[in-house]
């Protein structure tokens, strides 16, 4: 909680501070906990409903903790044209969970993403915030899953 209060305080003077606050909180804690909402609302002189409404509009923000690693598989048309559906189906089978869900062992959260800008070299996958991978095959995805679980 101290972290959230400090983040909110440090950013509240920025014009349009909400988005930078939400990013800073999620970067720090991995999600935006419900306890953050009243703190943000008070700092920005907005209602809690407005803050909830804004958080809910963005796919990037999550309200509950995710798995240790987030795998985002591109679902855009350009990746579809290069076999992304097969990769997505393989991911669901292999992880035993659907999109927006976390594996039973809590290690991996599977999310869709609509375009990583790697459209000439798909299927594309983003691991956590910055791990970009192109030309991902089902076998290549297995390697990413192994790496995420600390296996080789």
């Amino acid at each position: 909680m101290m972290d959230i209060a400090a983040i909110v305080e440090s950013l509240k003077a920025q014009p349009g501070a909400l988005l930078p606050m939400l990013h800073a909180i999620q970067d720090q804690l991995g999600h935006v906990p419900a306890a953050a909402v009243p703190l943000i609302a008070t700092a920005l002189n907005r209602s809690e409903a407005e803050i909830h409404g804004a958080i809910g509009a963005y796919h990037h923000f999550r309200r509950e903790p995710g798995g240790g690693t987030t795998l985002r598989i591109c679902r855009g048309e350009a990746c579809q044209a290069r076999g992304a559906d097969a990769v997505a189906n393989h991911a669901r089978d292999r992880l035993g969970c659907d999109f927006h869900q976390t594996t039973a062992d809590g290690t991996i959260t599977l999310e869709p993403v609509f375009c990583l800008g790697l459209c000439a070299s798909g299927p594309a996958v983003l691991v956590d915030e910055a791990g970009l991978h192109a030309g991902v095959t089902p076998a290549g995805l297995d390697a990413l899953i192994h790496a995420a679980r600390g296996q080789t």
Binding site: G16, L18, L19, H23, L44, A54, A57, Y58, H60
Partner: peptide
């Protein structure tokens, strides 16, 4: 420099402005 948060409609200019202002991007 501001970072979006995974919302396609924010590419629409008025939704983008709402997002920048810190509102729900409508």
């Amino acid at each position: 420099v501001r970072k979006g948060a995974g919302s396609y409609v924010c590419g629409e200019e008025t939704a983008l402005l709402e997002s920048l202002e810190g509102n729900r991007p409508v």
